[in-house]
Design a protein around this nucleic acid. Structure first.
Length: 580
RNA sequence: GCGCUUGUAGCUCAGCUGGAUAGAGUACCUGGCUACGAACCAGGUGGUCGUAGGUUCGACUCCUACCAAGCGCACCA
């Protein structure tokens, strides 16, 4: 709808240019906004105020000229001047009716798929395989996956990359411990990965012999020793199974084939250093191979180094990140590479991205974007920890969420069977954790609070899931299929129009999610849709409508609302329930 | 020391590339169930948008300085 008004306005501006009212060289960005106040019409534009000064005109006078030059269009009832020079557009209801009816008829809800879809590599989750996944991995996994799903819904080609930490010195310690256990004839117990890590760390600290063996194993591993690599592969495969089980439980779409860990770039690291040398970007400093970029200079004129190779010859994460960028840009042909990684690594990524462009690992056309996020804090505002101060395992967090959700659902449905209770409780528990995270701007730290996220009131997963079941319930009662119902929608009641208007904004919200990596915009949107639906539901009887025609029309509108909520939640990685 | 992020109602958070009177939820107060699921809806109280300047017709939004919190700044990732 915005695009229609935008087209009309740009035509009007062209006309005024021809008439000499506006200078030829003005090419303003036409910004159409949804109005907040009904008296301002449906859509508004501030273009007259932007152009008034360069045109040397009074904004209202210019607005008047623009309106006079607008081509007539049956879809727009009226354009008015308001306030200091806004132009308010009143949309023809029949156009809105047509739009919602068309969206209902489309299984893709009227959202156009990108004509020229981009190839977008998304790096997210990326846990360290040496340890068990903890709460710190939650945000990357969930937010990244939501953006991935939104991009795919828009018709882009997404290549998921789970850049797991499967390399590095800590693996020597783990392999040494594995070896020791196997030699002692003990069965390998990796069920508790965290415990295994702690135990091997303990051995490493306590025994000099063990530590020596661990260091030997790292060297052996890196030089391609067969025995060592077999141990390593065994360990990783078990550790990865833990991750995959959690993804499945969380509804995160990452699979084994999306894994391309640090180790995948081992053979490229030397090449990266050589290419940097050839490009004359490399400098030796204190024995290490470094790149100094002028962009990263402090006030004293000291440039920050990007260390690519240690004094001892070892490589660092900057090196493998550069190799990953080269692979993604050159092999995967990425138009964009998105990194959902902790905000704390912002400097590192800024440096690596700048260097990658400079060294030609990625062309200037390849957009490298670090979409960072803040810390997950407890109720006290400090990083979320267990009572004893340790990191919270992701499994434990999800267990607790499910338990609490089951208790909650039970309290609302005392007679429900254990089986159903379990099913609904689990869905609600996981959804609550995910939604609480997704609904906040990722850049900020956020306070994790079970009571708040499991509440049925406010912008929470349970409220939205409930809203959906109410729609589903109508269709069950009417013995109709929400997904196949079609036909014309008439908008008579004010609440119907409000809902319809909001439903037509799905696509612009989606683009904000994909362009800026902000799923919280989608959360707010679904919440608004659910709220407007509730209001419509309260004010407009559906099954007991005045006429059969009205009943069908309202059913169709309800169906579009229900399907929008469901689709929106699915993009967020939250599945809906027909009953709860 | 330098840099990044954040600072909006008692609390948890929105506020889209500067736009019309700063919005939700929660808490608190008022109404509405012989139910298309009240797990809901309608309404009210509550904010000098960290502070001070500046740019602008117009600033929560942009610029500068300062204050506060968190986090980064050479061989961990």
């Amino acid at each position: 709808m915005k695009s229609v008004v935008e087209a009309l306005l740009s035509q009007a501006i062209e006309t005024l240019k021809q008439q000499g009212v506006l200078a030829e060289d003005v090419s303003p960005r036409i910004n159409i906004q949804n109005t907040k106040d009904k008296s301002h019409g449906d859509l508004a534009c501030n273009i007259a105020m932007m152009l008034a000064k360069p045109a040397g005109m009074n904004p209202r006078a210019l607005a008047e000229q623009i309106i006079a030059s607008l081509p007539a269009d049956p879809r727009i009832n009226e354009a008015q001047i308001a306030g200091p020079g806004f132009i308010n557009f009143f949309v023809n209801d029949s156009w809105l009716e047509q739009q919602v009816s068309e969206s209902l008829a489309d299984e893709h809800l009227g959202i156009k798929r990108a004509i020229q879809g981009e190839t977008i590599v998304v790096d997210y989750s990326s846990p360290n395989l040496a340890k068990e996944m903890h709460v710190g991995h939650l945000r990357s996994s969930i937010i990244g996956d939501a953006v991935v799903k939104a991009l795919e819904f828009e018709g882009h080609t997404v290549i998921r990359q789970n850049h797991v930490g499967d390399w590095g010195t800590q693996f020597g310690m783990l392999l040494a411990y594995m070896e020791e256990q196997q030699n002692n004839g003990e069965s390998l117990d990796l069920a508790d990965l965290e415990g295994f890590y702690r135990a091997s760390k303990q051995r490493f600290d306590d025994s000099e012999d063990f530590a020596t063996r661990a260091r030997e194993l790292v060297v052996a591993l890196q030089s391609g020793d067969e025995y060592c690599n077999k141990l390593w592969a065994e360990f990783n495969s078990i550790s990865l199974e833990h991750c995959l089980a959690l993804y499945k439980r969380l509804g995160v779409s990452l699979t084994a084939k999306d894994v391309r860990g640090e180790s995948a770039y081992n053979n490229d690291l030397q090449t990266i250093v050589e290419e940097l040398t050839q490009a004359k970007l490399l400098t030796e400093s204190q024995g290490a191979q470094c790149v100094f970029l002028d962009e990263f200079k402090n006030k004293e004129g000291e440039t920050l180094p990007i260390i690519v190779q240690k004094a001892g010859g070892g490589f660092l994460y900057a090196t493998s990140d550069l190799a990953a960028i080269r692979y993604r840009a050159q092999q995967l042909n990425a138009d964009r590479v998105l990194y959902f990684v902790d905000q704390r690594q912002a400097l590192h990524f800024n440096q690596v991205f700048a260097l990658a462009h400079k060294a030609g690992f990625a062309s200037e056309q390849t957009s490298l974007e670090h979409l960072g996020f803040g810390t997950m804090n407890g109720a006290d505002g400090k990083p979320f920890k267990t009572r004893s101060g340790g990191t919270v395992k992701l499994v434990d967090l999800l267990d607790e969420a499910e338990e609490r959700a089951i208790a909650l659902v039970r309290s609302k449905n005392p007679d429900m069977s254990e089986e159903e209770l379990n099913k609904i409780g689990k869905a609600v528990g996981i959804a609550s954790v995910k939604y609480a995270d997704l609904s906040k701007d990722r850049a900020r730290d956020y306070i994790f609070n079970f009571d708040q996220m499991l509440s049925f009131e406010g912008n929470t997963a349970p409220y939205l899931m409930y809203a959906y079941t109410r729609v589903a319930s109508i269709f069950e009662k009417a013995e109709l299929d929400m997904n196949s119902i079609q036909g014309d929608i008439r908008l008579e009641h004010e609440k119907e129009k409000d809902l319809a208007n909001k439903l037509m904004q799905f696509s612009e919200v989606l683009s904000r999610v994909t362009l800026k990596g902000q799923p919280h915009a989608l959360c707010s949107y679904i919440y608004e849709v659910a709220g407007l639906f509730s209001s419509f539901y309260e004010n407009c009887p559906i099954l007991s409508a005045d006429s059969e025609e009205q009943k069908l029309s309202r059913l169709r509108l309800a169906a579009l609302a229900g399907r929008t909520i469901k689709q929106g939640l699915n993009i967020l990685g939250i599945s809906t329930l027909e009953k709860m």
